[in-house]
């Protein structure tokens, strides 16, 4: 179960400002999702190692070879706001 206080904390960490109605709504929705996953608890996993990945492959690396991305403009253009060649973001209010 997730409560209103936890929703507020996660929202704060994600720098999201939620209205009281939104807090209520997200608490309900998140609990719905968690309840759904709760079904997994029915399984006995006592002797099963935690799985982090669906495919278990180690040491996947690439060579250090330069390849310049061809469409920088598209990346800049897909941002909510830009200023010339910079991305532009709203005033930053907290520093931690």
């Amino acid at each position: 179960m997730i409560d209103r206080e936890q929703v507020r904390k996660v929202a704060h960490l994600a720098r999201l400002e939620l209205s009281t109605a939104e807090e209520e709504m997200f608490t309900t929705q998140l609990n719905g999702i968690l309840d759904y996953f709760e079904q997994l608890s029915e399984l006995d996993v006592t002797n099963v190692e935690p799985t982090f990945r669906a495919i278990d492959a180690s040491n996947i690396t690439r060579q250090d070879v330069l390849e310049t991305h061809s469409d920088r403009e598209a990346i800049l253009e897909s941002a909510p706001d830009r200023d010339g060649e910079f991305f532009k973001v709203p005033q930053i209010i907290a520093t931690d």
Binding site: D83, F86, F87, K88, V89, P90, Q91, I92, T95
Partner: peptide, 12 residues
């Protein structure tokens, strides 16, 4: 400085 600015520009 950060405190006086009204927006910020980002170079990634």
């Amino acid at each position: 400085r950060l405190s006086g600015s009204t927006y910020s520009l980002v170079d990634y």
